[in-house]
C-alpha cells in the first residue's frame, strides 16, 4: 500500500545575509491515510518550515527547498506546477496555524472566509457554500452557527477562531490536515477541547493529521507515530507507545523528563535540558546535540551520527546505539 504522505530527504534552507540556515536538513518521514503523526521539538527546530515545505509555501526568497521529495498520494509535490499545487492546497491538504488570533482575515466575515474555499475547490455557489459553512461550524462545535457566520474574527475568542480555522481546513474533505501547533496560543482547557475535536474529526472523516507540537503531552494523547526533530534534523522516530516506553535519544529523554506527570509516585523534579538550541547559522560539528548532551563522547563532537534503527520501526540518530 502506498503511503498518503512520504517525505524523503527534505532539505529547506534559508539564504540570509548572515549565512545559510539549514532549517530542515535531510528530513524523512511518512504518514498513512487516516492516521496521526506528530512532529515534536523545541522552538526553532524546523517544524513549521517542514509543514510549509509540504504546502510549498516557503517564503522565497530567502527560503528555498533545495532537495528531497514529497510524495502525496504517489505524486511528488515538488515537481508540480504552481497551478496544480494550488488545486491541492486547501483542498486535499489543508493547514491550521499556530496563531488563531491573526490567521483569519480581519476584514471579512468568517462565513465568507469559509465559503471562499468551497467556492474555489468545490464549485459551490454563494448560498450553497454558506449553508455548508454553517454545517461546518456546527461540526466544529460553534453554538448558533447561523448567526456566527456573520461575525468578524475580532468578535470571536481565540478558541472560537481556531474552530473556524478547523472548519475551513475541513471544508473540502481533505486527505491530510497539517496542524502547526494549533493549541499553543490557547488556554489549557481550550487546548484539550480543540485536540479532542481534531481527534474526533480525524476518526469520523478519515482525514490524516500531521500534528506539529512542542508538547509531548499532546503527542501521547493523539498520535500513533512520532518524529522528534532537533536543529532541522530527525533525531528519533517511533510509534508513540514505543517512544514513551523506551525513548532512546538523550534529547527525547530530556524532553520526557521535562513534562510533568500525574502518575509519578515520588515527586521528582522537572528537569529542563541544559543549554539552549544552537543557532542554525553556527551549528556544532558532529552531532548537533553534543553540546547539551550529558552522554556526549569524542565521536559525537567529530562526526554526525546517521539515523539508524536499533529496533524494528524505531530509529534514532545517536552514536550510543551503534
Amino acid at each position: 500500500m502506498t503511503k498518503l504522505l512520504e517525505v524523503q530527504n527534505l532539505k529547506t534552507y534559508f539564504f540570509t545575509d548572515r549565512g545559510v540556515a539549514t532549517a530542515v536538513d535531510d528530513v524523512s518521514f511518512s504518514l498513512d491515510a487516516g492516521k496521526t503523526l506528530c512532529i515534536v521539538g523545541e522552538s526553532g527546530c524546523g517544524k513549521s518550515v517542514t509543514a510549509l515545505s509540504i504546502m510549498r509555501l516557503i517564503p522565497e526568497p530567502p527560503g528555498r527547498i533545495v532537495g528531497g521529495r514529497i510524495f502525496f498520494e504517489g505524486t511528488d509535490l515538488l515537481t508540480l506546477s504552481e497551478n496544480r499545487m494550488r488545486s491541492i492546497r486547501g483542498n486535499k491538504i489543508s493547514m491550521i496555524f499556530q496563531e488563531p488570533m491573526t490567521s483569519l482575515n480581519p476584514v471579512f466575515r468568517v462565513g465568507d472566509q469559509i465559503a471562499e474555499v468551497l467556492e474555489l475547490h468545490e464549485n459551490m455557489k454563494g448560498p450553497e457554500a454558506m449553508d455548508r459553512a454553517v454545517e461546518l461550524l456546527r461540526m466544529v462545535g460553534i453554538p448558533s452557527p447561523e448567526s456566527r457566520i456573520k461575525d468578524y474574527p475580532h468578535q470571536m475568542s481565540g478558541g472560537m477562531r481556531q474552530r473556524v480555522m478547523i472548519a475551513m481546513a475541513l471544508a473540502c474533505n481533505p486527505k491530510l490536515i497539517i496542524a502547526d501547533e494549533p493549541t499553543t496560543a490557547l488556554d489549557v482547557t481550550i487546548q484539550a477541547q480543540i485536540l479532542e475535536l481534531m481527534d474526533e474529526l480525524s476518526r469520523t472523516t478519515g482525514t490524516a493529521i500531521l500534528l506539529i507540537t512542542h508538547d509531548l503531552g499532546v503527542v501521547a494523547e493523539t498520535a500513533q507515530h512520532v518524529v522528534v526533530m532537533y536543529a532541522g534534523r530527525v533525531v528519533e522516530e517511533a510509534p508513540v507507545k514505543q517512544l514513551f516506553h523506551d525513548p532512546l535519544h538523550p534529547y527525547t529523554r530530556g524532553l520526557m523528563r521535562s513534562i510533568p506527570s500525574m502518575s509519578d509516585d515520588q515527586r521528582r523534579r522537572l528537569e529542563a535540558i541544559p543549554g539552549v538550541v544552537p543557532s542554525l547559522l553556527a551549528l556544532p560539528v558532529g552531532c548537533k546535540f553534543n553540546d547539551r548532551c550529558r552522554h556526549a563522547f569524542d565521536r559525537c563532537r567529530a562526526e554526525e551520527p546517521p539515523l539508524t534503527a536499533p529496533k524494528d520501526g524505531h530509529s534514532v540518530r545517536c552514536w550510543l546505539f551503534h
Partner: peptide
C-alpha cells in the same frame, strides 16, 4: 507579511 495572507495562500487562492 500578516498571518492571514499565509492562510489565504494555504487555501489555494491565486
Amino acid at each position: 507579511r500578516q498571518d492571514y495572507i499565509r492562510t489565504a495562500k494555504a487555501k489555494g487562492l491565486a
